[in-house]
Design a protein around this nucleic acid. Structure first.
Lengths: 338, 338
DNA sequence: CTGAAAGCGCTTACAG
DNA sequence: CTGAAAGCGCTTACAG
């Protein structure tokens, strides 16, 4: 395979100047239709492929968006990232993706690499810790950047933020359980002090306060494994607790497994609510009540917001909150089973 | 924010020529240490960031790898893609990722976009159907491309292929069930006629043949939903079937849910084996016996193979098969529960 | 409607 | 060890 043909090869073969070829490439109305047709024909013949990189050197807007995700293996983030990528693709942009695995150093490194690669804009679901390393580099490069899902930098002017309404979700979940007559309701999972945990817990706490019942918080990793552990802990140390709101669906799915393991019946003995409503919630048995964040719709919307920013130069608001709703399934039905 | 500084700005400020700055950037030993130090200092001062895109125009090897995945939301592929991306990143390459959602047209489109973006190489877990549209474009562009997980183009010279040893996995699963005394063993899920299904089923069929027992194949979607359905079908229409090998873990997890739903006990009544060994297998209860493909290790290895190809110009063998092993858990233990 | 020239930010021989 | 010049494949004014 020899070198790829360039517009000069096309121009020579078509008997026009390379400027004309370039105009054809850009679908400029300046070019006569016959000329355009001839040029396109030659391109097809010699197998010309557009070199977008060279084009962007002159004009900027590389058509490349950087997407940085703190934990891509978590199905919640997978769903989000996939939705963003596919929306960007549909609008003609390619996505450079990196998983940071909750490692601030790795995050700073991949962001620097993306900047070197000339990404037009960045969307980042950041990790906690050493925010400066990542965000000051972005600031210096002056690249439009949207924080999503977790707010780690408070300057919403420079780094607009968007997330589902976590607090409302916590509230809906707690009110649902209260309406079922539960009085001892625990909040389990999530690391204390972190943005997402605080918001989700805040809704829970305010609902309990309004109902005049005492909260019980058992923080922990946002994983299935922690959910399993906490199912045992609840049965052993807090048998009076009749309902739990989980930090996310993974914890909730772990609680379901744990209850199955120790033979505790879901519904009558323990009502469980998850958070995020990932696909598994509807598929497990008993199915899991969860706070739907419509993460696919959220991803789509974020991609649109970012591209509108890039294309129209209009920065989004400093804070965007998208609606959530409670999806009620078997895990909180009075007569569910296990 | 004004335009980003270039090597010319650095050169001017440091009082050297831009060639010297370029050599510093490349860590060339030609540059005197003092000069190098001075240049680096200036870079830091004025916030210079390397423009890799411009550099690559002259030299090629953009440091960008295209990764194309047929179904990124499936945790098996998520794990794979994440492992590949992180390995590439550790070796200094950025990853352009696209999900094709099993759509051949979309696949052809995203591959064309990646080629325009000047990717150095491609790794593709392809979708079935209209292979020509995708692979002839890659062929014309002359980009090193590795087919992984599914073989859809037979020319292993041009498009080397690699996957775990699916056939061996099917064999191990069937032999395990036979050794437990099962005689009626079904293979459920997976679309007939497709590469992966055929290989997994082949191992199953040969083990059954050797044992002199008749096979039963119930093809279907590779999803949890299908697994749930088939659990009902088995209980209703094939009560004598005491064991199933599932096309993948999603189907198997669906079977577990379905059995829980209809109160069928895992182990004594029905033994279940999954395939791939995704993370969930160890977390569900009862835990799921599965054929471990070590997909994270596989992804790491594929990234290395691809980069060795790119960097050393040494194409990998036409066919690479990586080892699998059976991980035995509760779902096939005689005294498991449900 | 089309052509000639300059330039995007680098790297690469080639001199010195 | 360092500088001046050409070139990577395009786009963009500017003429004509």
């Amino acid at each position: 395979m020899d070198r790829r043909p360039t517009i000069i090869d096309v121009a020579r073969k078509a008997g026009v100047s390379k400027s004309t070829v370039s105009l054809v490439l850009q679908n400029s109305p300046l070019v006569k239709d016959e000329t355009r047709a001839e040029v396109r024909k030659v391109m097809a013949e010699i197998g010309y492929v557009y070199n977008r990189v060279a084009a962007n050197m002159r004009s900027s807007n590389a058509g490349l968006i950087g997407l940085v995700i703190n934990d891509l293996r978590n199905p919640f983030f997978t769903e989000f990232a996939t939705s963003v990528q596919m929306t960007l693709s549909a609008r003609g942009y390619a996505t450079v993706l990196a998983n940071t695995n909750e490692d601030p150093d790795l995050q700073a490194q991949v962001v620097a690499a993306m900047i070197e690669h000339g990404v037009t804009a960045l969307m980042i679901s950041p990790t906690y810790g050493n925010e400066a390393a990542t965000f000051s580099a972005i600031g210096r490069a002056g690249i439009p950047t949207l924080q999503v899902l977790r707010k780690v930098v408070s300057d919403g002017q420079q780094f607009p933020f968007a997330a589902p309404d976590y607090e409302k979700g916590g509230l809906l979940a707690a009110e649902h359980l209260l309406s079922l007559g539960a009085r001892q309701i625990a909040f389990v999972g999530g690391f204390e002090g972190r943005d997402v945990t605080q918001k989700r817990m805040k809704g829970y706490l305010s609902a309990l306060k309004a109902a005049g019942v005492a909260p019980l918080v058992l923080p922990g990793r946002p994983t299935r494994a922690f959910g399993r552990e906490v199912a045992r802990t609840l049965a052993r140390d807090y048998p009076q607790v009749g309902a739990v709101i989980c930090f996310n669906d993974l914890v909730a799915l772990g609680v379901l497994s744990g209850c199955a393991e120790i033979g505790r019946r879901l519904g009558p003995e323990l009502k469980v609510v998850g958070f995020d409503d990932i696909e598994d919630c509807a598929q497990v048995w008993p199915s899991l009540t969860s706070v739907r964040c419509d993460i696919a719709g959220f991803g789509l919307r974020m991609a649109d917001i970012l591209l509108d920013w890039v294309e129209a130069g209009q920065a989004p608001p400093a804070d965007t909150t998208t609606p959530v709703e409670l999806i009620i399934r078997a895990s909180t039905l009075p007569k569910a089973t296990a």
